[in-house]
C-alpha cells in the first residue's frame, strides 16, 4: 500500500529521492564469486520483471552499455527461465532492440540520454555504478561485504510500463517501506 503510494508520489518528484539500497546476496569474495552473485541477482530481477503482454515473449535481449564495475562476465542466471541474449550496446545513446539495459561506467551525458530514452518504454534498467541509486536506473547493484546487494529506484520503476513483483521491491527497499 505504502509502496504504491510512493510509486505514484515519487514519479513526480526528483530522481534524487529514490529508495535506498537493501538486499544482499551472500557470495564468496573471489572475482568468480562476485560474478556469480551479480549474475544471480540480475537473473533474479529479470525473472521478477513482467513485460507488457503485447511484446513478443522471451528470449529477452540484454544490452550492456559502458564498463561493468563488478564483473566482466555478465551472463544473467534466470532461475528456471529462458536464457538471456547478452550483447554490447552499439550506439551509446540508443537502446532500441534491448529489453534490458545494463549500465556500466559511462559518460554522464550518454547515461542521461539512455535514461531519457528508456522513459515510457518497456525496458528494465540495471546499473552497477550508482551506489546511491539516484541516477535513474531501476535497480542498482553494489558490492558490499560479504556479498553483492541491490537497491530499487521506485521512481524509475514507476515511470515505465514494466511491472516488478512487489516482493522484489520489498527486498530492495530494506523493509522500511513495507
Amino acid at each position: 500500500m505504502f509502496v504504491s503510494l510512493l510509486l505514484v508520489g515519487s514519479s513526480l518528484a526528483a530522481p534524487q529521492l529514490a529508495m535506498e539500497a537493501a538486499s544482499q546476496t551472500i557470495v564468496d569474495g573471489s572475482p568468480a564469486g562476485v560474478a556469480t552473485g551479480v549474475n544471480r541477482i540480475v537473473g533474479g530481477i529479470i525473472s521478477y520483471a513482467r513485460w507488457p503482454a503485447d511484446l513478443p515473449r522471451a528470449p529477452r535481449t540484454m544490452c550492456v552499455a559502458g564498463t561493468p564495475q563488478l564483473t566482466d562476465h555478465i551472463a544473467p542466471a534466470v532461475p528456471g527461465g529462458h536464457s538471456i541474449a547478452v550483447r554490447r550496446l552499439s550506439a551509446p545513446a540508443n537502446g532500441s532492440g534491448c529489453d534490458i539495459l545494463f549500465l556500466g561506467r559511462m559518460p554522464v551525458a550518454d547515461r542521461q540520454r539512455l535514461i531519457a530514452w528508456v522513459r515510457g518504454r518497456p525496458v528494465l534498467t540495471i546499473t552497477d555504478d550508482d551506489p546511491g541509486c539516484s541516477f535513474g536506473a531501476m535497480f542498482c547493484l553494489r558490492a558490499r561485504a560479504p556479498g553483492v546487494s541491490f537497491s530499487v529506484n521506485l521512481d524509475a520503476i514507476g515511470r515505465g510500463p514494466l511491472r516488478i513483483d512487489p516482493r522484489v521491491l520489498q527486498i530492495g527497499s530494506d523493509g522500511d517501506a513495507s
Binding site: 544482499q24 557470495v27 532461475p79 520489498q170 527486498i171
Partner: peptide, 18 residues
C-alpha cells in the same frame, strides 16, 4: 511464496522478512 525471492537472490535477510 514469501521465501521465493529470498532463495532467488540467496538472501537470508529477505527470507527473514518474507
Amino acid at each position: 511464496y514469501g521465501a521465493e525471492p529470498a532463495l532467488v537472490f540467496n538472501d537470508p535477510e529477505a527470507a527473514r522478512e518474507g
